[in-house]
């Protein structure tokens, strides 16, 4: 059981004037039972990478091992539906996938497609709705009448209802208010810790990377630029500076203090520890 990319390449519109190579020889092994962030500039191949995970895109070259499934380029892949029941993929702005008359029906759609009976599906739907923080009074409402943030939650619940082992999310917090975003990320962390789900999340928010993720994969121009633990990643912010992405506030604060003469170690990642360290240094100095 693992998720492994083996020299995977992907080319869009092969052999046309629009040909575009989005991935080059990607070698990557995602750690199971962890929350991994995938970051990179727009056009770096994040979304393409992510769509390989449940075989919506099939590699143009190389080999993919996902759980017990093997996908080899230029070979007809079989059993994709089974793979998709194990890997849940939430797209960017997933609210457009809602289509049923009631939220309950929409949530049941996924599980039923994968062979659940009506009762099982309903049970799963109700559980998923609770997970995303909406109560049962929503079940009979139309998903199209909800607010943007609620639609997002229902759409994500639609994937959670399928109860996949691996949860892949492409910018799940884009366009959400800060509170909603935090609630969303905490939910993914909780799913990871309580139920042992492997979570892969594409994000641009470094605070989320620091607070909710274990590992970071950096994509650059269709290649894996680095794959490290979160703490290792924020020790050196050269790459983030290159991308004009601000590091998390804690890291920035520490850097700014160090620039002005402090000698704080670069392996503290929360405000409390940082405050204690500052206090200590000030005391020693004074």
């Amino acid at each position: 059981m693992s998720i492994e990319f083996n020299k995977v390449g992907y080319i869009y519109s092969e052999k046309t004037p629009f040909e575009y190579a989005a991935l080059h020889d990607v070698d990557l092994k995602f750690s199971e039972g962890k929350v991994t962030a995938i970051i990179g500039a727009t056009g770096s191949g994040k979304s393409t990478l992510v769509q390989h995970l449940n075989a919506l895109l099939l590699p143009s070259s190389g080999k993919l091992n996902i759980l017990n499934f093997e996908i080899v380029a230029k070979q007809k892949a079989t059993n994709l539906k089974a793979l998709r029941s194990h890997v849940g993929l939430v797209f960017q702005f997933p609210e457009y996938q809602l289509f049923e008359e009631t939220i309950l029906k929409d949530l049941c759609f996924g599980p039923k497609n994968f062979g659940a009976t009506e009762e099982e599906a309903q049970e799963k739907a109700i559980r998923a709705l609770k997970l995303v923080g909406l109560d049962q009074s929503y079940l009979e409402k139309s998903p199209l009448d909800l607010s943007g943030g609620q639609k997002r939650r229902v759409a994500i619940a639609g994937i959670l209802a399928m109860d996949p082992d691996v949860l892949v999310l492409d910018e799940p917090t884009a366009g959400l208010d800060p509170q909603g975003a935090i609630a969303m990320m905490s939910l993914f962390k909780e799913l990871n810790q309580k139920f042992g789900k492997t979570v892969l999340v594409v994000t641009h928010d470094m605070e989320h990377v620091l607070n909710y993720c274990d590992e970071v994969v950096v994509m650059k121009k269709g290649e894996v630029y680095s794959h490290t633990t979160v703490h290792e990643f924020f020790k050196d912010t050269t790459y983030l500076d290159e991308l004009h992405i601000l590091p998390p506030s804690v890291v920035r604060f520490r850097q700014m203090l160090n620039e002005r003469g402090f000698h704080l170690p670069n392996d503290c990642y929360d405000m409390k520890t940082l405050c204690a360290l500052i206090a200590k240094e000030v005391k020693n100095h004074g």
């Binding site: 919506l56 998709r84 029941s85 996938q97 759609f109 639609g158």
Partner: peptide, 8 residues
């Protein structure tokens, strides 16, 4: 694609 990942 989104519906395919929901098993369509």
């Amino acid at each position: 694609k989104a519906q395919a990942s929901r098993g369509v």
